[in-house]
Design a protein around this nucleic acid. Structure first.
Lengths: 228, 228
DNA sequence: TTAATTTGTTAGTCATGGCTAACTTTTTTA
DNA sequence: TAAAAAAGTTAGCCATGACTAACAAATTAA
């Protein structure tokens, strides 16, 4: 009796590369994702990336021409989406059941997403009653691997006078997430753009009856839905 | 801001060896645990074990003399106990919250026990309200690493007429666990020894108003507390 | 359109953790 | 107690996935 937890037998590294490539491709749609971007993103050398990309091409998860841009096959995408599903479900579990704050979940979820067991993740999903979004506001792909991306409007793209609702935050940086919580912003917060200062691109915003000045960089990492 | 999830920076392999050595030492107390036993247990070659033991000795987790028996240092033991704690808490979670049966939990827990995060495991413990025993009846070490071993009396050690209660089962084999469930035995089942057949060492037992014949090998893997 | 810069590739190295084959030490047994 | 068997060790090999250094191709700028 073999113990087939998962037909997918990729290493942690292979999974990391596939997920990273997927994130780069879907977040910056039209832009070319090359070897060096991927290397930068994963904080490894371009040589390492080149090496792994070869392996993933041989396994039919990645396609690219020599010196050309990288892309994922359907199978590659499917693996990446399943990893994202696992990551976001674990983050949700950690926040909603284990008292983790949203800046604490990422690194643990990064480990948990590599656990191989279909039953585990599907039961976890059921246990939480099939949550639609993770603690950062991102949509959780379902068990069939269906994935739709939130249309990402950044806070920085709005104009003076606009009113919006915070729908998601970029979960890439712990310090950013802490900062967001500290000033009192949370998912669903209603934010009004009071003023955009030309001098340094800083933005004066109002929410929960307080006003705050945030930098352009901050506003780039806050995703919103326009209300007015 | 470094992301110190856990001060312990051992690899998965190192952890596996430490845990295995601990299990061998504590389960078969007085008996010498040597290189080959450890290799057998982990299903690797004696050469691999020898290699790893060297590494663990250098890190002060293991002590042994050349050609002598292996032993763990206090630090080595402490790491092993924490792994066992993690393993058993995860098994408990899988059984009690995620609809896993007791034969399904082992392999997934084997992966989950390597996740590095103190907060994760302590919160999981709290979430389940600090369970004392895992689904196989084994005691879960507490957060301070206190570990006591159930006095293990096997079903096979009893005599005709004895009555006992099932307190734990050996969780090493999936087929064994399925077998136990199939015939209707569970933790706390009261079992009476009807007859021990000299011819083949088989044992006729009675429980839940049914009688069954089990082999000596089966009875070796069932741990009980004598009632009469 | 040539030169400089960026991007991508290759070759060769290292650590980890497996392996086999050969050898040595210890233990058993005849 | 000497020979056989078992247990432990060592040397040397392999795959994975990092790395640096050197080189080639493509892109950008002068």
């Amino acid at each position: 009796m073999t113990n087939k937890l998962n037909s997918n037998n990729l290493t942690k590294s292979e999974e990391d590369y596939l997920k990273a490539l997927f994130q780069l491709i879907t977040e910056d749609d039209s832009i070319k994702v090359g070897n060096n971007q991927l290397a930068d993103y994963l904080k490894v050398s371009p040589a390492s990336t080149n090496n792994m990309v070869k392996k993933l091409k041989a396994k039919n998860f990645v396609v690219s021409e020599k010196y050309g841009k990288l892309d994922l096959t359907e199978e590659g995408k499917s693996i990446a989406v399943r990893l994202i599903r696992k990551h976001r479900l674990w983050e949700t579990f950690l926040c909603n059941y284990l008292n983790f704050t949203w800046d604490e979940v990422h690194d643990v979820a990064e480990q948990l997403e590599h656990i191989k067991s279909h039953k585990l993740i599907n039961e976890l999903d059921r246990f939480m009653d099939f949550p639609k979004k993770d603690p950062h506001g991102e949509i959780i792909p379902n068990a069939r691997g269906e994935y739709y991306v939130l249309p990402k409007i950044t806070l920085s793209s709005l104009s003076e006078g606009d009113v919006c609702k915070l729908v998601a935050v970029n979960d890439g940086s712990v310090t950013f997430l802490r900062y967001v919580s500290e000033i009192g912003l949370a998912l669903s917060s209603e934010i009004k753009i009071i003023e955009i200062r030309e001098f340094d691109n800083s933005i004066r915003i109002q929410f929960n009856n307080v006003t705050e000045t945030v930098t352009r960089k901050f506003a780039d990492n806050v995703f919103v839905k326009k209300v007015v």
